[in-house]
Design a protein around this nucleic acid. Sequence first.
DNA 1: CTGAAAGCGCTTACAG
DNA 2: CTGAAAGCGCTTACAG
Lengths: 340, 340
Amino acid sequence: MSVITIKDVAALAGVSPKTVSRVINGEAHVRPAVRDAVMKVVAELGYRPNEHARGLSSSRSFLIALLFDDPASGYAADVQLGAIERCRHHGHHLVVERIDRAMPDWLAEVDATIASLRPAGVVLTPPLCDWSELTALLIHRQVPFVRIAPGSDTVPAAMVTIDDFAAAVDMTDFLIGLGHRNIAFVEGIRSHGAARKRLAGFREAMTRKGYEIREGWIYEGDFTFRAGLAAGEALLNLPNRPSAIFAANDELALGVLISALRMNIAVPGDLSVAGFDNAPISRMAWPQLTTVQQPNREMASAAVDILVDPSYTHLPANSFSEKMTYTLIPRDSTGPRSAG
Amino acid sequence: MSVITIKDVAALAGVSPKTVSRVINGEAHVRPAVRDAVMKVVAELGYRPNEHARGLSSSRSFLIALLFDDPASGYAADVQLGAIERCRHHGHHLVVERIDRAMPDWLAEVDATIASLRPAGVVLTPPLCDWSELTALLIHRQVPFVRIAPGSDTVPAAMVTIDDFAAAVDMTDFLIGLGHRNIAFVEGIRSHGAARKRLAGFREAMTRKGYEIREGWIYEGDFTFRAGLAAGEALLNLPNRPSAIFAANDELALGVLISALRMNIAVPGDLSVAGFDNAPISRMAWPQLTTVQQPNREMASAAVDILVDPSYTHLPANSFSEKMTYTLIPRDSTGPRSAG
DNA sequence: CTGAAAGCGCTTACAG
DNA sequence: CTGAAAGCGCTTACAG
């Protein structure tokens, strides 16, 4: 049997293709009886509209593009799951694209993708949600987009965030509550907005309590395990070493944790370690990492929901933006400051 | 400026749209001078063919679908990177779909996706590369597909594999070479073909050397960290515990490793632990895991290359299949059997 | 509430 | 080697 088209459905239902189209797209002004008749034929025939035909005749397609810088991270995988799930729910499909800013013509590549795919919307993850050339391009091309966890809020597009600043304040307060005063911080990639906010939250909490942030106790990491290892080695070899280390994500924290174990520093006995993200690896450590749960999946779902909302089409009021809740998850890598 | 179409290019180059089409698609029978002229206009105008129009007029699109069961795993992310890179190289785009077999109408969902997207090809990852309803559907729909690391080789489609059996033999031999005789094995998900082959390789190597595989020393895991933890606890509490544990993937191995640490069993002093995959987490452990490097990215790249090859269209000879090389990576989680 | 006509931007099939 | 015509399967814009 060859492929079923809208004409087949129309013929069998005794209506015009246009009416079938109305039913398929849930448009108003179709008599319930007609609607039901059409739906019945659609179901019987297993009719599925050809999305390329739809994309061609209307100027918008059924595709949502998810743009990543580093799609191999656990973070990206999580975000993807949320996006895929909502795309399916809305009858859309998720196209994933990697943007490698090291390529000289990366912007032209993105432009080409937009031109040839005409996605209904674009989801931007960190750090590229803060690349101004990219957001400017999308605005120029009039493609709706939503940014997840951006650093700046000056772009005229919706964003889905958690309050990274407040979460970092909370985690720092939590450590302080355990008796820690000498707390070091390991930064994420500085171009990540969220990374900067986490650092700012740490500073704020320490300052509020009047505790000193010592020279050299803020280590510039880059969100990788390797950097965490280096950070741990540097910070734990300081003459007056911190009793707690708060890292901007779980990979960094895991690196710190393992560098401590290597140096025979007991966690949490001699050192408390805290991360951020609640990535799977935070539970694959020993001891398990205290961290902040960030609802990555839900954030991506929310982004897709916004893009699919027809009222979001013509460029983006921030009224669509959503701030989601985070949760501090105390586990075994943190404990009371030891007497020593 | 409005969107540039093939007509604009044709007009400016002084040729027919059909000729532009020939140039764009790299067809033969275009005079070099004409070709160059067209390409110049294409470049000047920044023309990008509307892929929906292409997908509509030819019956095949520019989309490659990547089907996953569990897209959140590190494995999936890795595979995706390879697929995305090759898709871009070939001017295609990657659509990721999750198949949740728990949904009663999962097959209909896949069918709908195929019908509406008309992908140029489909990449199947484990374990769904071995779901016969799925492969039957794709064959019926005449959609080219390639399977990555399948268990069975009875499906008429190309597959990209490593020799899991041989790799498991090698790893077992490696452990035996360190003096281990009492080796336990932690299985992956039994429905994974690769998981079964790894177990078979382990059995083979032990049997060849005439070593006993003790009752209860093959633990049924499921590729998760949690199962690794449980496996470690079970195996290490056995009255006569193994001196080495070989796990079917790195997550399991990490679970085993951590359960050993919790029980105060030194690795590799008192216990050697080996994994499989060379996942990022294998390096985030302490000690780092001895494992088998599986070229996931390259395997996905190869799969896309096969799908894009025009001679692969009308269903699949196995002559396209590729067996890729693996590498045993000795690290710190394995060592000589201790005297005790 | 429903439909006939035209068109989206390409490629296919054919002609020369 | 090149092009004119027709068509892919929908939706848009219009009419009634």
